[in-house]
Design a protein around this nucleic acid. Structure first.
Length: 417
RNA sequence: GCGGCCAUAGCUCAGUUGGCAGAGCGUCGGCUUGUGGUGCCGGAUGUCACGGGUUCGAGCCCCGUUGGUCGCCCCA
């Protein structure tokens, strides 16, 4: 590697070749399945007024306090590269007056997100997410449908093996307050036994102790009270309905009362698809219900539910399962001698118009162009020599089989379709 | 933000107690001027990540920086 070579900024990476093929396959598949479920795709700006995130993600979350790319633009406005997708979608719903229109709205999105974090496997500073939201639906069927669609996408990608859907409820506000008090009481009684990190959490965000990775915490967490004893009747009925709809959709899941949400706007349903195959960054897809977010964005009270998934993590699973999609194989059109070039261009365009991937090497004799055809993994070569051309024919060579035949140019597109 | 490990050719990596910079793959050319892939022959490519220090001498030892990686934190 040459010295002083420009490198991509820390925590970013170039998507080239098979990396991009996997990345693209994730988005394409998600987009296609989302459409089957009736979701429409939105694209919102990758930077927003800083208040879009500051107000909604919760003032205490690390994402807001330490990890946002925030700066003043030339007009003195504070803008932020989006650290997640949901806030922008909700802002767009409000900005465009869609809270007044037909609800619910089912939205799919894909694109880059930015967080100033220490990079490691499955965690970059510029990363990419797909996500979906059902805006304006309070019914548990919408929670289940959104989860079912996420599960369907993973199954379609072939990355569902080894991944488990874990579901929990965070309850409604009364449930949550009662549970929070019970948790604080329980952990306070065992304060000395907690890890130093969790002692801090006890004061700041006690629910977070539940997903601590510290061995000494886990024993305590195992015996900690769960939210189920503190759910209101409504919250319990809601959760039971979600679970029953999931079963109805055929989605396998297990209840995990330790699931907590990082961002503050969630209530009721919380879920994660987790895998052991990605090391510490094992969450593949995560989401839940956020009934207060649209209102905090200045809109009317609008219940909503959704999820986001890391494209890089899904792409790593694709790679690990050997499912990198292969690009379509081209037909290499090869003129022999200058006189055949005109005919070659006509053949190229005829093939392309028929939807067939066709390429021509920009230079070289027959041998060079055959080598080139091989390097680009072409499936066929169409060899145009003067002798055959006078009869309107060419040689069609099957590069896998090594066989060759004479064919009428007019029959080429149909033959190769 | 914290801790561990790592950085040698385009890629994967060797490099002995500190003593001439290496291999495989890839790439380029030839064997073969109307036929690729597998074969044979040959060539090119490095400020050993960057900066400093120790030493007669540093890819190797020491310090710093940058980047990667694993874990913590956080989170998709």
């Amino acid at each position: 590697m040459a010295p002083n070579l420009l490198q991509p900024p820390r925590g970013t990476h170039d998507l080239i070749g098979e990396d991009f093929a996997r990345h693209h396959a994730v988005i394409d598949t998600a987009r296609r399945i989302a459409r089957l479920y009736g979701f429409a795709e939105w694209a919102t700006p990758i930077f927003e007024d800083t208040r879009v995130f500051g107000r909604t993600l919760g003032d205490t979350s690390d994402v807001v306090t330490k990890e946002m790319y925030t700066f003043e633009d030339r007009g003195g406005e504070s803008v932020t590269l989006r650290p997640e997708g949901t806030a922008g979608i909700c802002r767009a719903l409000v900005s465009n007056g869609l809270t007044q229109g037909m609800l619910p709205r089912k939205v799919f999105y894909a694109g880059p997100m930015f967080r100033y974090e220490r990079p490691q496997k499955g965690r970059q500073r510029q990363f990419h997410q797909i996500g979906m939201e059902v805006l304006g639906a309070a019914e548990p069927l919408s929670d289940a449908e959104v989860i079912a669609c996420g599960w369907h996408i993973q199954r379609e990608l072939g990355v569902d093996e080894g991944t488990v859907l874990e579901v929990n409820t965070l309850g409604d506000t009364p449930s949550r307050e009662a549970y929070r008090a019970a948790l604080v009481a329980y952990f306070s009684a065992h304060r000395e036994a907690l890890s130093p990190e969790s002692q801090v959490r006890l004061d700041k965000n006690p629910m977070r102790i539940l997903d601590s990775k510290e061995a000494q915490d886990r024993a305590l967490v195992a015996d900690a009270p769960t939210i189920f004893a503190h759910l209101t009747d409504e919250a319990r009925a809601f959760f039971d309905a979600v679970c029953s709809y999931l079963t109805g959709f055929g989605v396998p899941f297990r209840i995990n009362p330790r699931i907590v949400r990082g961002l503050d706007y969630y209530s009721h349903t919380a879920f994660e698809f987790v895998t052991e195959r990605l090391g510490a960054q094992g969450t593949v897809m995560a989401g839940g219900r956020y009934n207060g977010l649209v209102e905090s964005m200045g809109g009317p009270p609008t219940p909503a539910v959704g999820w986001a998934a890391g494209i890089e993590r899904l792409a790593m699973l694709l790679e690990a399962s050997g499912r990198t999609p292969a690009p379509p194989r081209a037909v290499a059109v090869i003129p022999v001698g200058d006189a055949a070039e005109g005919a070659a261009l006509e053949v190229l365009q005829a093939l392309r118009s028929a939807g067939i991937v066709a390429e021509i090497a920009y230079k070289g004799n027959l041998k060079r162009r055959m080598e080139r055809a091989n390097r680009i993994a072409a499936r066929y070569a169409v060899i145009l020599g003067d002798a055959e051309l006078t009869e309107g024919r060419a040689q069609l060579r099957d590069l896998d089989a090594g066989t060759q035949e004479s064919i009428l140019l007019a029959e080429l597109p149909a033959r190769l379709s």
